[in-house]
């Protein structure tokens, strides 16, 4: 009897696990089955390195290089802004913040994670874009605006994951450091934080993933011009926004090329994950 129950439960767990595996597999199959033929038709290098995106011209050109550059710029900008702020906030929360302040700051950060991206987009549109237009010039719809906005959007992820990584560092390390006459600052920055490196890197991967995949907020502030920008005050189009802007009316090879853009995005995410797991293995000392 119990044997049968156990077998049944095994099957249930197995099926549950299977659901997510099937989902991943289906997404891959869909992406590659539609994207690869389109890429082949356009020409792989013309597609990746082509500087011109003009799908409605005749003859059309399908070069997504500007969008790849756009995604990289905007994500890099978000990381430059979000990582220092996020990691320092995490250190503050885990090692400096008085309990009273923590009870206010922590829920505020969690709330930040729950705000829908369209609301972030509005904030960018109403605050960041005019700010940049007024003080730095240009239209305000720019790489810089998108970077700042994404930098804010990835904060909750970076703070949350980094903070728990720092809290998970054994207390013995901290005690060992202060017992050697280290100040609180030195014990935190030279012992505890380095011991949390792999968790902090993990938070950065998640942040990169979030930033490179974000669409709605970016489309509202980035200007969306499909060309390689020459300044961070110029507008830019990312891979995600390229898809969302044109999918509504695209058909034929145009539609295929948008799905192929999704393939490239997917490959990017895979590469980032790979890169960080290598980094993580290299910096993680034991444990």
């Amino acid at each position: 009897m119990t044997m049968q129950v156990e077998k049944l439960m095994h099957a249930v767990f197995f099926i549950a696990a299977l659901v997510s595996i099937i989902a991943v597999a289906l997404i891959c199959i869909f992406l590659f089955a539609n994207g690869i033929p389109a890429m082949r038709e356009i020409g792989f290098l013309d597609f990746l390195l082509g500087q011109r995106w003009a799908p409605m011209n005749s003859p059309p050109s399908f070069g997504i290089f500007p969008m790849i550059v756009g995604s990289i710029y905007v994500t890099a900008g978000a990381i430059i802004i979000g990582v220092p702020v996020g990691v320092l906030t995490a250190i503050f929360l885990a090692k400096y913040c008085p309990a009273k302040l923590y009870r206010v700051v922590k829920p505020a950060i969690q709330l930040l994670a729950g705000i829908p991206s369209v609301v972030y987009g509005f904030f960018g549109l109403m605050v960041i874009v005019p700010f940049i237009r007024t003080y730095l010039g240009g239209s305000g719809y720019s790489i810089l605006s998108a970077s700042i906005l994404l930098g804010i959007m990835i904060l909750p992820t970076i703070i949350g994951v980094s903070e728990s990584a720092i809290r998970a560092v054994p207390r013995e390390y901290y005690e060992g450091a202060v017992a050697l006459g280290a100040t609180h600052e030195r014990a935190v920055f030279a012992t505890v934080v380095p011991a949390a490196t792999s968790g902090i890197l993990a938070s950065i991967i998640l942040g990169v993933g979030r930033a490179i995949g974000e669409t709605m907020a970016v489309v509202m502030v980035a200007g969306n011009q499909a060309r390689v920008p020459s300044s961070i005050l110029q507008g830019v189009r990312t891979m995600t926004t390229n898809v969302v802007l044109e999918m509504g009316y695209a058909y034929g090879l145009h539609r295929g090329s948008l799905i192929a853009t999704g393939v490239i995005l997917f490959v990017f995410i895979l590469m980032i994950n790979l890169l960080f797991s290598v980094l993580k293995r290299r910096t993680n000392y034991g444990s």
């Binding site: 054994p170 013995e172 390390y173 005690e175 017992a179 011991a195």
Partner: peptide, 13 residues
């Protein structure tokens, strides 16, 4: 100086 009950080397070389 102090040595603890449980060995607590830092995760470094």
């Amino acid at each position: 100086g102090m040595v603890f009950q449980k060995p607590n080397p830092f995760p470094m070389s």
